[in-house]
C-alpha cells in the first residue's frame, strides 16, 4: 500500500536534515506503528507524506499503491486515499463541521470521477458513524473543532476518517491528550475501520495506544531513520526499558 524508499527530507527554511533515509513498507490490511524519541522525525514523516509546506525532499521517494505521491498536491493525495489524523486538529471558525465533511467527501468523490453524495444520503451516513463515536448533533453543527475538548477533536478526526474511507491512514500521536475512556473510543473507531484493503501507520510515543490498536509491526525511529523493526513485543520493550537500550544496540 505505502512504500517509502530512502526518504531524505530537510526543512525548506533552514539547512536542517530531518529524515535521513527512511525505508518503510506497509502492505494493505496491515497496521504498522512507529515509535521513537522526541525529535526523531516521526511527525515530519507524517507531514511530508500528507503534503504540508515547508519541507524539501532531497532524496528518495514515497508511493501509494505504486504511485509517487510526493509530487501531488495535498488534495490529490487525499483523493488517492491518503489520510492524516492530525496530532493537533485545526480549529476553523465559521465553517460548520457538517459542511466541512460534506465538502471534503464530495470533493474527493468528484476527483475520483464518482458522483457526489446527496444531502439526504450524506446525513444518514454521517449520523450513523457519528453515533458510534459518541459525537452528538451539536458537535456536528458547531464550527470545525472550535471549542472541542482534546478528546472531541480526536474523535472528530476519526469521524472524518470513517466518512472519507481512505486506503492509507496515518495517525499522528492520536493518543496525545486523551484520557483512558477517550482512548478506548478512538481506538474502537479505528479498529472498526480495519480492513483487508486498508493500511494504518500509527505514530505514537506510548505503548498503551497499541494495547487498543494492535499493530502487526512496530518500527523504532531515531535520528531520521527506522533503526529497528519487530513485532508488538518491541513496543513493550520500549515501554519497559525506554529507548536507550535499543538505540545503543543499533548504534
Amino acid at each position: 500500500m505505502l512504500k517509502i524508499n530512502n526518504l531524505h527530507v530537510k526543512l525548506e527554511e533552514e539547512d536542517k536534515q530531518i529524515l535521513k533515509g527512511v525505508d518503510l513498507e506497509v502492505p494493505a490490511g496491515a497496521v504498522h506503528a512507529i515509535m521513537g524519541p522526541n525529535g526523531s522525525g516521526k511527525s515530519t514523516l507524517s507531514y511530508v507524506l500528507s503534503g504540508r509546506d515547508g519541507y524539501e525532499v532531497t532524496e528518495g521517494g514515497a508511493a501509494l499503491e505504486g504511485e509517487d505521491i510526493l509530487e501531488m498536491e495535498p488534495e490529490e493525495r487525499a483523493a488517492a486515499g491518503l489520510f492524516l489524523a492530525f496530532q493537533y486538529p485545526v480549529e476553523i471558525p465559521g465553517v460548520g463541521n457538517m459542511t466541512f465533511l460534506r465538502t471534503a467527501l464530495n470533493a474527493q468523490r468528484t476527483a475520483r470521477g464518482e458522483e457526489e453524495l446527496s444531502a439526504a444520503d450524506f446525513l444518514k451516513v454521517v449520523r450513523e458513524k457519528a453515533k458510534s463515536l459518541k459525537i452528538d448533533a451539536d458537535m456536528l453543527k458547531r464550527p470545525v473543532n472550535v471549542g472541542f475538548s482534546g478528546g472531541e477533536k480526536k474523535r472528530n478526526e476519526i469521524l472524518q476518517m470513517a466518512m472519507l474511507e481512505p486506503k492509507m491512514c496515518i495517525l499522528d500521536e492520536t493518543d496525545s491528550g486523551l484520557d483512558v475512556d477517550a482512548m478506548r473510543l478512538v481506538s474502537e473507531g479505528v479498529n472498526a475501520l480495519r480492513d483487508e484493503g486498508r493500511a494504518f501507520l500509527v505514530i505514537t510515543h506510548y505503548q498503551r495506544l497499541l494495547d487498543h490498536i494492535k499493530p502487526d509491526v512496530v518500527h523504532i525511529m531515531a535520528d531520521g531513520r527506522i533503526v529497528k523493526s519487530g513485532g508488538p513485543e518491541l513496543a513493550l520493550e520500549v515501554e519497559n526499558n525506554g529507548y536507550a537500550d535499543i538505540l545503543s544496540e543499533v548504534a
Binding site: S50, G51, R52, D53, E73, P74, E75, R77, A78, A79, F83, L84, F86, P89, V90, I92, P93, G94, V95, T99, F100, T103, A104, L105, A107, Q108, A111, P143, Q160, L164
Partner: peptide, 20 residues
Amino acid sequence: FYLRSRGVPEAEAQDLLVLA
C-alpha cells in the same frame, strides 16, 4: 492545509475560509 489534506481543492478551500 487541513482542508486540503481532507481533499478539498485549494481554491475551494480558500473560498470556504473566506466565507467563514
